[in-house]
């Protein structure tokens, strides 16, 4: 079932591209970009949801609510859900598109593994997956040689007798950059998600690096292409923050100025006092600040 719906079509597309471009390395890159393109609506939705959620969590109303019900968790959960409903923000909205992408990524991974068949048994199984309109005798076996790499083996560029894992280094670097610049702005100090993101930014590059160092370089090439494509995709959408790794670039505001939420949801109701923001907390959104006519020096720098 899984193979028929996901892996077999992916494998045939990958083989079809390979047949067209006559190069498996380029086929992996093109296929990765194709998958990114197909899943773009999901990614865009995820970015939009994340942005809205962050904005909501930085709003004075949200903070007021957190402060007000800090000792009543049940009421806090109820009020929070009410606010989410009003704002039409789905708390799972930012992770659902990601969850949908998991089978696609795993399918892509498995199809790359299958195409790099290294034993007769794997070749037999691969040949049986090929759709009749593709001539298996012309496609198989796939040429694993790409640049200096054997895509079926872990990659090392031998310079002066020393094998340098160039691809592994690039995967580690791009995974780290991706984690840094693509991560959404924090919802506040002590934010669990922020802590998790920070921890992930440390461990993910190491984990991906280890996988790239030990497994076939075809997979490392896929990781690299995927990382670069993701960074470009987020950059195009204006949701990257390069100041996190390039100090000479001005930092982005914590909250995106062009709000995706109605202003009324971000404001504190007129009958309620404005809570004093704690020093460690991020400043409120620009829009909310304007509405409340707060002093200019308290506005977030743009």
């Amino acid at each position: 079932m899984w193979d028929t719906i996901i892996v077999q079509p992916f494998t045939n597309i990958l083989l079809g591209i390979t047949l067209g471009v006559k190069n498996f390395g380029i086929a992996i890159i093109l296929f990765t970009l194709l998958i990114k393109l197909v899943t773009y609506p999901l990614t865009a939705k995820q970015i939009k949801q994340t942005r809205a959620m962050t904005e909501l969590q930085n709003s004075p109303r949200y903070k007021k609510m957190m402060e007000k019900y800090k000792d009543n968790h049940e009421k806090l959960a109820e009020e929070r859900m009410k606010l989410y409903r009003e704002a039409k923000v789905n708390p799972a909205g930012s992770c659902l598109p990601s969850l949908i992408q998991i089978p696609i990524i795993l399918g892509l991974y498995q199809s790359i593994i299958k195409v790099m068949a290294a034993t007769p048994l794997e070749l037999i199984k691969l040949e049986r997956m090929i759709y009749p309109f593709l001539d298996s005798s012309k496609i198989l076996p796939v040429q694993n040689h790409f640049l200096w790499m054997d895509l079926g083996q872990p990659e090392r560029l031998v310079v002066g007798g020393i094998g340098i894992p160039v691809l592994t280094i690039l995967v580690v670097l791009t995974t780290w950059i991706q984690g840094k610049v693509v991560a959404p702005p924090s919802g506040g100090a002590g934010d669990q998600a922020a802590a998790m993101t920070k921890s992930m930014n440390l461990y993910m590059p190491l984990l991906m690096g280890w996988i790239s160092f030990t497994l076939a370089s075809g997979l490392a090439l896929y990781f690299l292409a995927s990382n670069v494509a993701t960074i470009i995709q987020y950059s195009v959408q204006g949701t990257t923050d390069w100041s996190k790794i390039l100090p000479f670039i001005k930092p982005k505001p914590a909250v995106v100025p062009a709000s995706t939420l109605p202003a009324s949801l971000l404001e504190i109701p007129d009958d309620e006092p404005i809570p004093e923001p704690k020093k460690s907390e991020p400043k409120p959104s620009a829009r909310a600040a304007v509405k409340q006519q707060r002093p200019p020096q308290k506005r977030k720098k743009k």
Partner: peptide
């Protein structure tokens, strides 16, 4: 995803007879 992939990173990946 990385954990799933990482599970395969312990040795050569091949299915043989």
């Amino acid at each position: 995803t990385a954990l799933v992939l990482g599970g395969c990173a312990m040795g050569p990946r091949a299915d043989g007879t």
